[in-house]
Computed example of a mutant assay.
Amino acid sequence: MPAQHVRTLGPVLESLDAVMLTTLDGADRMVSRPMTVCVDNFDGTLWFFAPITSQVVADISANPKVNVSYCGPPASLSITATATVTPHTLPVLARWRPRLAPWFPDGMNTAATIEVVAERARLWTSPTPPARGRHLRPVRGGRHDTF
C-alpha cells in the first residue's frame, strides 16, 4: 500500500480500540469477530492476538485472505489484507499489551500473533458524525476514498 494511503489510514486506526476481523471458514463462509487493535504507528501492517487453538487461527492458516472493518466515529473503513499467524512466543512478547491479559487467562504463552498486511482500503469520513440511532448514510461534504 502506498505511503500516502498508510498516512491517511494511520490516524484513524490508531484512534480505535477494536475492529472486526473477517475470515473464511472451511465451508467458505465469512466469519467476523471483534479484535482489539494494537496500533502504535501504522505502517501498513496490523497486529492482532488470538488463542493458538482458536478458530480464527485455523481459518487464517487455511486461507490467509481477510478483511478488517470498522464503522463509527471518526470514520468507517474496510481493509482487504493477507494475514499470517505466528504461534511463537517472541513475536507475542514484542507486541503484548497489558489490556490483552483478560483475553488470555492462561498467559501470553497461549497467544499467537496475527500479522495483517493491508492491500486495499476503503475509507469513509464525514464532517459531522450521524445522529445517535441513525444509520450511516452519505453526507454532503462527506468523503469516500478507495486505496
Rank of each mutant, 00 (worst) to 15 (best):
M1N: 06
P2N: 15
H5E: 15
H5T: 08
V6H: 02
V6M: 01
R7M: 02
R7T: 10
R7W: 03
T8V: 02
G10H: 08
P11A: 12
V12M: 00
L13W: 10
S15I: 05
L16H: 11
D17L: 09
V19A: 00
M20K: 01
M20G: 03
L21Q: 03
L21R: 01
T22R: 00
T23C: 11
L24T: 08
L24W: 04
D25V: 01
D25T: 08
G26N: 07
A27P: 00
A27F: 09
D28H: 08
D28E: 15
D28A: 10
R29P: 04
S32K: 00
S32R: 01
T36K: 04
V37I: 12
V37D: 05
D40N: 13
N41D: 15
N41E: 15
D43L: 00
G44P: 05
G44H: 02
T45A: 08
L46A: 06
L46I: 00
F48W: 11
F48S: 06
A50H: 04
A50T: 13
A50V: 05
P51T: 03
P51H: 15
P51S: 12
I52N: 05
I52W: 02
T53E: 14
V56R: 07
V57C: 14
V57M: 06
A58I: 02
A58T: 14
D59G: 09
D59V: 00
I60G: 03
I60Y: 06
A62L: 03
P64I: 06
K65D: 14
K65A: 13
V66E: 12
V66L: 07
V66W: 08
N67V: 10
N67A: 14
N67K: 01
V68Y: 05
S69C: 10
S69A: 13
Y70P: 02
C71F: 12
P74L: 07
P74V: 09
L77S: 13
S78I: 03
S78H: 06
I79R: 07
I79E: 04
T82N: 15
T82E: 15
V85C: 11
P87F: 01
H88L: 05
T89A: 12
L90W: 07
L90Y: 03
P91V: 08
V92A: 07
A94I: 09
A94T: 08
R95F: 03
R97H: 14
R97A: 11
P102M: 10
W103R: 09
W103A: 13
F104D: 14
F104G: 11
D106N: 15
T110Q: 12
A111Q: 12
T113Q: 13
I114Q: 05
I114H: 06
E115L: 09
V116K: 04
V116N: 08
V117Y: 03
R120Y: 10
R120K: 14
R120G: 10
A121C: 13
A121G: 15
R122H: 06
R122M: 08
R122K: 06
W124G: 02
T125Y: 05
S126Y: 12
S126N: 08
P127Y: 07
P130R: 03
P130I: 04
P130A: 04
G133R: 02
G133N: 04
R134F: 07
H135K: 03
L136H: 04
L136I: 11
R137F: 02
P138F: 11
V139T: 12
R140S: 09
G141F: 10
G141K: 06
R143C: 09
H144S: 13
H144N: 12
D145C: 04
T146A: 07
T146I: 11
